[in-house]
Each structure stands twice: as C-alpha cells, then as structure tokens.
C-alpha cells in the first residue's frame, strides 16, 4: 500500500487540493482517506460525497500529530478493509513543530501563498522534510510574490517538488496525482519518523493549569533560550 500524508496550515486548502487529486487518482486505484482534526470538522463528509471511503479521527486532548502517528496502524487496517491501494491521511498539524511524515510515505505539505513571504521560514519540519510542497492561492498574489515565496520554500527544502495548485479550479491536481503514483511502498513494521517530535515534556502536558513558574516541572525553556530540566 502507498501512504500519502498531507500536512499544512489550517485553511491552506488541504482538503480541496486532496479532493481534486483523489478524483484523478481513483480512476486507476482504490483510495481510502483518513481525516484527522482536533475538535471538529465536516471535511470527511466532502470525501464521502465523492464516493471515497473516509474515516474521521478527532484528537481531542492529545497532540494531533502524535495522535496521527500513534494511530497509523489502525488507519492502515481501515484502508485494508476497503481494499485500498492508497491511503491518504490528512493531518491537522497546528504547532508546526512536528512533521508527521514517515520514511516511506509521500509527505505532502500544503502551504498558502497569501500568508506572506516569511511563512516558509516559520513553519519548520512539515515543510523542510516534505517530498512535495503544494503552494495554494497563488492566483491572488503577484507573479513577483509567487516567485519570492517559491524561493523561500526552496531555501527551506531544496530537494522538494513544488506544485502550484488551485483548490477551486483543480489546477495542479494532475501533477500531484503523478506524485501519489510514484510514492514508495509503505511498511508499517519498519516505518520511522523523518523528524523527531519535540523533547519538551512538562507538567502542562499532563494537565497543570496554574501559570506561575514555580508550579512547572519537566524539560522547559526560558525566554532567553536557556533549556533545563526542573524536577527530581
């Protein structure tokens, strides 16, 4: 099975781009989709409506990327049940610190060009470790800004394939479909993350709500950049 993991900033157009691409891919392959979000989404219904088996996962109190990684096996089972040759996982990806891509999946980063030329420098590993970077909404900014944005993406990820897409018209879908086809075979037993998740485990992660610094323990980092372990 081929596994495609799509990450991107909220509202960048991940679902629209994936819908257009899946419409092309499913002419030749059985596709299943898993949509991960944090609290609420109706996006999975959009996948149902084009006739693709789709599963929704809400991460609630768990970090959505960690949730995606933890549940990879269950998602594969879902895809196998539907005899899918391709599993597309749309992640929620919010803090930009994790990258959910694994060694043999196709990592697709969807990024919105209207968020300004510094965005590629801010978003971290989900851009820098992606195989394919899909730039959306380029049709509403000038050619010059598109070229600056593209250059910044390449600064962060020199070997990526860039696709300029439009979720509304379907532009870029054929190109992205070709990338799906070229993805490697996924092997659940052997997969590893391309980029480690953050080290910082602190008391906030396990439910602390008090703000004062005296109540916090764990691997923490100060405003001045000093990182330390507080605790026993």
């Amino acid at each position: 099975m081929k596994v495609i993991i799509a990450a991107g900033t909220p509202g960048a157009g991940k679902t629209a781009v994936l819908l257009n691409t899946i419409k092309q891919v499913r002419k030749q392959h059985q596709v299943a989709v898993v949509k991960i979000d944090c609290l609420y989404t109706e996006d999975h219904i959009r996948f149902f409506s084009i006739g693709v088996p789709a599963l929704l996962g809400l991460s609630k109190d768990m970090c959505p990327d960690h949730y995606t990684i933890f549940n990879t096996g269950e998602m594969i089972e879902f895809a196998e049940k539907h005899k899918a040759e391709m599993l597309v996982i749309e992640t929620a990806g919010l803090c930009h610190r994790c990258a959910p891509y694994t060694s043999n999946s196709l990592g697709v980063c969807v990024i919105d060009a209207t968020t300004g030329p510094n965005t590629p420098l801010k978003v971290g590993p989900f851009l820098s470790t992606a195989n394919t970077v899909v730039i959306t909404k380029g049709d509403v900014i000038s050619q010059a800004e598109r070229e600056i944005f593209r250059e910044r993406v390449l600064e962060m990820n020199p070997s990526c394939r860039i696709i300029e897409a439009n979720g509304l018209t379907g532009k870029g879908a054929t190109e992205l479909a070709a990338c799906f086809e070229d993805a490697a075979e996924f092997s659940y037993d052997e997969e590893r993350l391309r980029h480690n998740a953050p080290f910082s485990i602190c008391t906030l992660c396990v439910g602390e709500t008090r703000v004062h610094q005296q109540f916090h323990r764990g691997v923490i980092r100060h405003l001045n950049g000093v990182q330390e372990y507080l605790g026993e």
Binding site: T114, G116, P117, D139, V140, I141, S142, Q143, E145, I148
Partner: peptide, 11 residues
C-alpha cells in the same frame, strides 16, 4: 508568468 485582475500585492 501570470498577470491577472485578481492579483494583489500583499507583502
């Protein structure tokens, strides 16, 4: 290279 009515400078 593209030029259209809908394009704006956002920077």
């Amino acid at each position: 290279a593209q030029l259209s009515q809908n394009m704006n400078f956002l920077a």
